[in-house]
């Protein structure tokens, strides 16, 4: 049972390990060194532009030249009374809130349906993920074709089913254009929310649901009093992501309507692009974009609170 003789001999090591600690042992310095490059990059290329975004909003900078001079609040005095700006601000809120409300309902329903034992669930999940995985600009151009003013397949189907009598010019009427944009946002975000909600549901212990069944809770009671509260944190995360992506998205509006008809569907991002890049007035564009900041701050705070609550609960 004893170790073979040669195994008991002390090491004959060719490379004696260093006895004292080196940089490779020092977690404090190692941590700083490993973190530094990423941190520097993020500070230089997110922090600096962020500061510059603030600065530009108070300047008369124009694209095409590098000059820069302060103009105080002039850009804000220009855009604040501008009805087009009001419209963009209102649209940003409207598109985001309506689409995310629909996303919640659809995602929770879809997740419940899909979590029921199901034939072909993997295939369904793959198909559900398509809208989110596809590059958003390409998806938007696809929808442009679906809503086409002459060949729209949606119109054909609705006419055929008798749901409408007249031809719908999706990008020709403000209400329809709004509907189209919201449809695309919902289509894009609900699969993501569904998949995240599904992940959350699979994390709910089976016993809790079973206990509720045994307690005699009906489906709806179980749903609102057991499942939904347990799912709330993860749904919140999904929705907050959705809010960020939707409220800041440029490509859908840009490719579907270009802000039209009659500038009725501009959002903050598309207006900022129009004023800042097409119009060349970087200052004014930056001032417009800055109004996204409150949304983002609120989202960030909510995210942190959710994360903290999840942490406490875990």
């Amino acid at each position: 049972m004893a170790l073979p003789r040669e195994a008991r001999r002390p090491f004959s090591t060719s490379v004696a390990p260093l006895r004292r600690r080196t940089l490779a042992d020092r977690e404090d310095w190692l941590g700083r060194l490993m973190l530094a490059p990423a941190l520097v990059y993020v500070v230089a290329l997110v922090g600096v532009p962020f500061a510059l975004a603030l600065a530009l909003a108070f300047s008369s900078a124009r694209s095409g030249s590098l000059e820069f001079s302060w103009v105080g609040l002039r850009n804000f005095w220009t855009i604040l009374p501008d009805p087009q700006f009001h419209r963009a601000l209102w649209n940003t809120l409207r598109f985001t809130l309506v689409s995310q409300a629909l996303v919640i309902v659809l995602a929770v329903t879809a997740a419940h349906v899909l979590s029921a034992a199901f034939v072909g669930r993997r295939l369904v999940r793959f198909l559900l993920l398509l809208p989110w995985a596809a590059p958003v600009a390409l998806a938007a151009i696809g929808w442009t074709w679906i809503f086409d003013s002459t060949f729209s397949v949606i119109n054909w189907t609705m006419l055929w089913l008798g749901l409408t009598k007249r031809w719908l010019y999706w990008f020709g009427e403000p209400q329809l254009a709004t509907a189209a944009i919201i449809i695309v946002h919902v289509w894009r975000m609900f699969p993501f929310a569904t998949v995240i909600t599904l992940a959350g549901m699979s994390a709910i212990p089976q016993e809790i649901s079973e206990a509720a069944v045994i307690d005699g809770a009906g489906f709806w009671r179980r749903f609102f009093q057991v499942n939904l509260p347990l799912l709330l944190p993860i749904i919140t995360v999904a929705v907050l992501f959705g809010v960020v992506f939707t409220s800041t998205d440029l490509s859908v509006v840009y490719l579907l309507t270009r802000g039209g008809p009659y500038n009725s569907t501009h959002v903050l991002s598309s207006l900022a692009f129009q004023r800042g890049i097409f119009g060349g007035d970087l200052g004014q564009g930056a001032a417009v974009a800055l109004f996204l900041l409150p949304v983002l701050v609120v989202v960030a705070i909510l995210m942190l609170r959710t994360a903290r609550r999840a942490e406490v609960g875990a």
């Binding site: 997110v46 530009l56 800041t248 800042g276 970087l282 974009a289 800055l290």
Partner: peptide, 25 residues
């Protein structure tokens, strides 16, 4: 810091493309 890094992911291109166009120039 990790949470901070994550929050920078939430800073959208929409807010940054104008200053970036300046920096790129």
């Amino acid at each position: 810091l990790g949470i901070g890094v994550f929050l920078t992911y939430l800073v959208p291109p929409t807010l940054l493309f104008l200053p970036f166009s300046r920096m790129i120039a």
